[in-house]
């Protein structure tokens, strides 16, 4: 399926979903762009620019999502992906999401179907769990969770975890099957406004199994503790 076709299908899905074609007075068409992380990391290999951005357009219960994350090292894009998803609320705190993921890097571009659940778990954990089926039969699972601890009304400490699992080895991209990598983050932000918060923090990455072996073959490290500095913003 071509990305354009999928976008058209998703847009149609949004328009013809529960809310019908038009916004109602209580439920206007809104959009949000959320730059969750835009940061510089002091990585083993040099200064790394990393981003994690989400945006949506839609209604209370139906939204068209755009998600992107990636890394640039020394002016070169190491990894970059874009997801386009249709999300439908399925529970008070949960949205089911279905769509397409496109990886620009690493290696050759690759497309995935994406199916995920995003929301707020009991005890206020923000969770995003997405399963991917790649065009070459690869499968992947990504689990992300984040918590917000308020040190004051504006100073917020946010621990975070991300896990990536894969169905099979992909040597060209340095990916091994099973648990591939784990990322733990701890960021301290100050909300100058709700919409704008600079932060500092630590990020620790660890590769496992064959992914770690591939990294060693390339002479890369398998774990890396990085200091980070960045901004979080939305509008």
């Amino acid at each position: 399926m071509q990305p354009q076709t999928l976008i058209a299908l998703l847009a149609a899905g949004l328009l013809f979903s529960g809310n019908g074609l038009a916004a109602t007075e209580d439920d206007p068409l809104l959009g949000m762009l959320n730059i969750d992380q835009l940061e510089w990391r002091d990585a083993d290999d040099g200064s790394l620019l990393s981003w994690d951005v989400q945006g949506w357009v839609g209604y209370d219960l139906d939204k068209l999502w755009l998600k992107s994350e990636g890394e640039r090292l020394a002016g070169r894009t190491e990894s970059a992906e874009l997801q386009l998803l249709y999300g439908r609320a399925v529970a008070p705190f949960w949205d089911l999401q279905l769509g397409l993921r496109h990886d620009f890097k690493p290696a050759e571009p690759q497309q995935w179907l994406a199916f995920g659940l995003q929301g707020l778990a009991p005890y206020q954990f923000e969770v995003d769990a997405t399963a991917f089926i790649g065009e070459g039969g690869q499968s992947a699972l990504r689990l992300e969770a984040e918590y917000e601890l308020l040190l004051s009304q504006r100073l917020i400490l946010s621990p975070e975890i991300e896990l990536n699992l894969y169905g099979e080895d992909d040597a060209s991209r340095g990916i091994g099957s099973g648990l591939s990598d784990l990322e733990l983050g701890l960021r301290l932000r100050y909300e100058i406004r709700r919409e704008f918060a600079p932060y500092i923090g630590l990020n620790w990455e660890r590769k496992f199994g064959d992914t770690a072996d591939f990294a060693r073959e390339e002479g890369e490290s398998t774990d890396d503790l990085q200091a980070v500095i960045g901004i979080r913003a939305w509008f």
Partner: peptide, 8 residues
């Protein structure tokens, strides 16, 4: 809401 519960 700037009256949220904090760690304190």
């Amino acid at each position: 809401n700037f009256n949220e519960r904090t760690l304190d």
